[in-house]
Design a protein around this nucleic acid. Sequence first.
DNA 1: CGGAGTGTTAGTCG
DNA 2: CCGACTAACACTCC
Length: 303
Amino acid sequence: MPELPEVETIKRQLARVLIGRVFKSVEIRLPKQVKGILVKDFRRLIRKSKIVKLERRGKMLIMNIVKEDDILRTEGKNVKPMFLIFHLKMSGQLIFKDKRGRLKGGGHPIKDALNCLPNNYSHLIFEFADGTKLFFNDLRQFGWVRLVIKRKELENLTKDLGPEPLGKNFKLQNFISCLSQKPNSRIYQTLLSQSCACGLGNIYVNESLFYAGIKPTRKNKNIKKQEYKKLYQAIRKILKKAIAARGTSIDKYLDALGNIGGFAKYLKVYQRQGQLCPHSCGSRIKRLKINGRSAFFCQKCQK
DNA sequence: CGGAGTGTTAGTCG
DNA sequence: CCGACTAACACTCC
């Protein structure tokens, strides 16, 4: 599930409960989800590390962690953090459970998953020194976690990501020139590729294109500057609104447990095929496969 | 029961 | 290099 607004929501929720906590151990039930490092090194580096900061880059959640020993040795000055990076892909969740069993965090909703933790999908279980826990659940097992020591390695992992669409570096002119560099790509596909703006997935790409009045099948080279401006504004507006609503949840899911999802009621086209266009044009929302993904759009309102 | 569909992206192939 | 396609996986829905 998680696209930019969902990961941002999870980051904000988890920051409130994770900053300052110290890892005691990690139970690795599905080793393949720990990428790029030997499991034994992963355990060793995690142990006695304190979470000092949470960041997000695109759809990745990044915890800055520091060995407690290093903090003591240097009296907390100029300690370089390591980076624990999560990608939830299609179905990952990060759920924090405090000592009383209360939950915070969230991700893709899995039926009954929150009633019982750990469950069949809890592939990594981090335990903190105070007995609280962080569960990494992932039904489809595409998600991953990695740990890198240097900021340089983190930069390597994010180097192909376009700018943060809500960040200062996201400028209309840069956005247009980036899209123009892929003249034969279709706008729907380019937006999903993370290259000109990061963090957009199928929900927000479809919603942004509807808002901007651009058909997902349009080739970039045929899109006018004015339309790109509208798209740029649409992306920012929709992402902000989605973050304010704490993300989107499709399907059934449990609220009240720190799980996410108020944006679903604002969706105009995503998974609304067959329904009347919300612009009251009389046309019905179409669904079309583009490179294996479902695009949703109004034939009348999107040119 | 079989097939399609699901919030992602890395890798391969032409 | 680009764009199209597929695999990684487990589940739900029609």
